[in-house]
Write a protein that binds this DNA or RNA. Structure first.
Length: 884
RNA sequence: GGGCGAUUAGCUCAGUUGGUUAGAGCGUCUGACUUACAUUCAGAAGGCCAGGGGUUCAACUCCUCUAUCGCCCACCA
């Protein structure tokens, strides 16, 4: 069996094999079991249209680490998976494929179109789930939810009705962000502002009574002038004071519009006079309401000009801009064009420039919802990691605007509002029925002529219920009771407003409890130049390719090890080599151990064995280091310092366990105690590394003699504080220093490995001599020394070279030195450096404040150091003399 | 306009509450086929910790200002 292990680890087959077994055996499933503490994470549901990208890989690796770690630590750990119907995004995908057939969704009609989308979902919706499985995600797939599922949709309707009944939902005409391509309203968050180079156009509007006089206004969207119903100036502006109240003739349209005064107008900007288009600009809308202006909508939902735009009707908004400018120019009414930077809203789904557009929409009143959500965070009931996001959250919440939740698309939860046509025919404001299910007849007039609201809800109106709707809220049930509130939410910063903040509000509103205790915000994955990874930039590193090439464990480990808490990640493909190499290192170390392990020495309980006898220092040391690593790993994971934990596990295994321990024990590998310790460290280490590298840890775990159950069901390693021994660690450090020093001397002097070397050691104190002496064999082995002796006098002979170590002197024959002059020079540099350091240290130790205020151990350490430096300086001088 | 983050080795980044000699990976250079691993092993070179000022016995770490880059927010016509 041992011979079967290859020299190189092959992740491909192994990973596929284990995931299948885990899944088949339901190892990820969690059941509500009161009495046992729950640990629950709800996945940020990826869009059904989603394809695994590095952001997902990072996000889900972090969650998987937490889930596996907490399960091993004894929690009843549940990772709730699912996908999001992603209204606009999904509809766009299906519309695009329809377009290939030359069809529009309107050609099919609502019902047929929706069933097409469902078809698409059935065919492609599981892609992202399959990909998450490749990553190793330990989700309880039996619970997989979809935001459009029947039960989930009922939760959505319930939430709507409750808010409506509390008068927290209202309908009204407001300026919203309109995407002319998707032809729907968007929330403020869905319009992403991008800084762009544009122009500021100065238009001249003639005064009615004195047509040779003009008021000049500046605008970035000249086509909107067709909908102007006033020009506003600041009442304190001397330039225009006399014109206030006068009438202008709006060019091209010949509408008479008034000059109004309002403090909102900034005198510094443009000409100080601003055209007012109440139906196409938020500020203008407010001015319009305030001053009772007319609202003229000049645009159709598709972004072309409508009949109110007169002869421009039918033109696309940007074509209309050119046409308007052309005509104004011809009429000499275009004074000038200035370059101007401005930030323009874009649809977050299709990147089309959005229009501020006046339309009838549904809104959620947010201030009352925000209040308890602010308090929960302020009172630390919910904590953000890193903490700085708290401020971002609070700032947004304290300035929250009402949420436009209606969308003019078809794919989504249709708003549970019904209209009785009979009632409406008498009074349009009446006849609104809000109900979770379609009413059979109007409760007022009993008419059955009832139609449902056409609009659907914003996708986020369903996502914000995710932490409890996934447990079939509002139905009270054991799972909901047991797993809610969930424990940790792991997500990206760009989603704080869309989702995190709203979930907190929804949780407090509907469940009267916070939805989660901790929010871990990780960084954005960027390419090596710091750009966001995106398909259009072509800078995407595909995680699936990385998995195929390096393995999932490698992807996970590398990703985690470079992700400092909340920092953005700059990624290049080479980074994954580190993870692959590490997996291979674990593989080979295990191979080595298994090759040498006697079956009887596996599965020996370490604690019981230790009671019987004392170990040698090397074995004591590795146990001490292991348990220190365990402690550090726990501290780091509990504080969400994943990279620290990963790097610490890496350097323990590679640089302590492999580089030192395994090398040191090679000569004694047959010994029972050594075998037991080496087996135990490996076995326990596999558990520590399992949350990070689930596949390879399982593969090796299952190859350990006598292990049957999966590693992911194992209990975490128990702390053994008594096995952490600083004194042993210190002593071993002395040994490493000596070996390093000798290796160093050989390398510097270019002494071939094969040549015989004799080393004399001189110790400053007898105690140290005593502790190092038993380690002589190790020094000989690892530093390739033939003869090792202790001498009283450290003074190097004429043919010797010496090196100074703390409290120690290492002397070796000079014969191998190639360039003595070079050595003397180096030596002198060292002496100079030490002397200047001594000066500083002496000054510090002479400082009364330091002695009075610094902790005792710091003072002692400094004193020791000074003594040591003095000795070293003297010795170096002597060596220098010896070299001559 | 407001807020946040970054600035540490050639590159990409760590550095948790101030306290021994500021670390890692990659890259470079030197040496090694040492029977677990060349996806390896042993070593070396390389840092006024962005800059100024301050607090402190002690600053990469805390405060302040400046510069450069990046992100987010805002009703900049």
């Amino acid at each position: 069996m041992i011979e079967e292990l290859s020299k190189q680890y092959n992740p491909g087959e192994t990973e596929e094999k284990w995931y299948k077994i885990w899944e088949q055996n339901n190892l990820f499933a969690a059941k509500a079991s009161p009495g046992k503490e729950a640990y629950c994470i709800v996945i940020p549901p990826p869009n059904v249209t989603g394809i695994l990208h590095m952001g997902h890989a990072l996000n889900n690796t972090i969650q998987d680490i937490l889930i596996r770690y907490k399960r091993m630590r004894g929690f009843n750990s549940l990772w709730m998976p699912g996908t999001d119907h992603a209204g606009i995004a999904t509809q766009n995908v299906v519309e695009r494929s329809l377009a290939k057939e030359g069809l529009k969704r309107q050609d099919l009609g609502r019902e047929k179109f929706i069933s097409k989308v469902w078809d698409w979902k059935e065919r492609n919706g599981a892609t992202i789930i399959t990909q998450l499985k490749k990553l190793g995600a330990a989700c309880d797939w039996s619970r997989t939810r979809f935001t459009m599922d029947q039960a989930y949709s009922e939760s959505v309707a319930e939430a709507f009705v409750r808010l409506f009944n509390k008068k927290l939902i209202y309908q009204g005409f407001y300026i919203i962000n309109w995407c002319p391509r998707c032809q729907t309203a968007l929330s403020d968050e869905e319009a992403t502002h991008v800084e762009m180079k544009g122009s500021l156009y100065y238009l001249k509007y003639p005064l009615k009574d004195t047509p040779h006089e003009f008021i000049c206004v500046a605008t970035t969207r000249p086509e909107t002038m067709l909908g102007d119903t006033a020009v506003a100036v600041n009442p304190n502006d001397k330039r225009y004071r006399e014109h206030i109240g006068k009438t202008l003739i709006l060019p091209l349209v010949n509408r008479q519009i008034k000059i109004i005064a309002d403090n909102l107008v900034d005198m510094q900007f443009g000409t100080g006079a601003v055209k007012v288009t109440p139906a196409h600009d938020l500020n203008d809308y407010r001015l319009g309401r305030k001053h009772g202006l007319e609202f003229i909508n000049i645009m159709s939902p598709d972004g072309t000009m409508n009949s109110s735009a007169g002869k421009f009707s039918g033109l696309d908004r940007f074509k209309a801009r050119e046409a308007v400018l052309g005509e104004l120019k011809a009429a000499a009414l275009l004074e000038k064009i200035q370059e101007h930077k401005l930030s323009v809203g874009h649809c977050y789904r299709c990147h089309t420039i959005v229009e501020p557009y006046l339309s009838k929409q549904w809104f959620v009143k947010m201030k009352p919802l925000a209040k308890p959500a602010i308090a929960a965070v302020k009172k630390n009931k919910i904590k953000f990691y890193p903490q700085r996001w708290t401020k971002v959250y609070l700032n947004w919440m304290e300035n929250i605007q009402d949420w436009c939740i209606s969308r003019q698309i078809w794919w989504g939860h249709r708003i549970p509002v019904y209209y009785c046509r009979n009632c409406q025919s008498q009074n349009p404001a009446k006849g609104i029925i809000v109900s979770k299910t379609r009413p059979e007849k109007c409760p007022k007039c009993s008419s059955t002529d009832i139609i449902q609201e056409e609009d659907v809800l914003d996708t986020w109106f369903s996502s914000w219920l995710w932490p409890f709707a996934t447990f079939y809220w509002p139905k009270e049930n054991a799972d909901l009771k047991y797993f809610y509130p969930t424990s940790t939410l792991v997500t990206a910063p760009e989603i704080i407003f869309f989702w995190v903040a709203r979930m907190i509000m929804a949780g407090l509103e509907f469940k009267k409890k916070i939805p989660f205790k901790d929010v871990y915000i990780h960084g954005t994955v960027r390419d090596i130049e710091g750009k966001k990874m995106s398909k259009s930039l072509g800078n995407v590193i595909d995680p699936l390719e990385v998995i195929a090439e390096y393995g999932s464990d490698a992807l996970r480990f590398s990703l985690i090890s470079i992700t400092a808490q909340g920092q953005d990640v700059y990624l290049s493909k080479e980074r994954f080599e580190q993870g692959r190499n590490f997996a291979n290192k674990i593989w080979n170390a295990s191979r080595f151990i298994l090759m040498n392990l006697e079956a009887e020495n596996s599965n020996v309980d370490l604690c019981a064995y230790l009671k019987k006898g004392r170990l040698d220092i090397v074995n004591r040391w590795i146990l001490s280091r292991f348990y220190s690593t365990l402690r550090k790993t726990e501290e780091d994971l509990d504080a969400y310092r994943f990279n620290e934990a990963a790097n610490n596990l890496y350097s323990f295994f590679w640089h302590e366990f492999c580089d030192w321990y395994l090398e040191l024990i090679k000569p004694q590998i047959g010994q029972k105690t050594t075998q037991i310790v080496m087996y135990n460290v490996l076995e326990k280490y596999l558990k520590l590394v399992h949350p990070f590298m689930p596949f390879i840890s399982e593969e090796i775990w299952k190859r350990l003699p006598g292990t049957k159950d999966s590693i992911l069901q194992q209990a975490w390693v128990r702390t053994q504080a008594d096995l952490i021994n600083r004194e042993d660690e210190k002593q071993m450090q002395e040994l490493f220093d000596i070996i390093n020093c000798i290796r160093n001397m050989r390398a510097e002097m270019e002494v071939s490995v094969n040549s015989h070397v004799e080393i004399r050691l001189t110790f400053a104190d007898k105690y140290m001599e005593k502790t190092v002496q038993p380690l002589f064999e190790h020094i000989k082995n690892l530093a390739k020394v033939d003869k090792l002796s202790i001498s009283e006098s450290y003074l190097p002979q004429a043919n010797e070279f010496a090196c100074v170590l703390k409290n120690m002197h290492i002397v070796m024959p000079l014969s191998g030195i190639v360039n003595v002059a070079e050595q003397i020079k180096k030596n002198q540099a060292k002496i100079d450096k030490i002397k200047s350091e001594i000066k500083n240290k002496e000054a510090m130790l002479a400082n009364r404040n330091f002695l009075a205020r610094a902790p005792k151990d710091v003072v002692d350490a400094e004193k020791n150091k000074l003594t040591y430096m003095h000795e070293q300086a003297i010795k170096l001088e002597e060596i220098k003399n010896g070299l001559r």
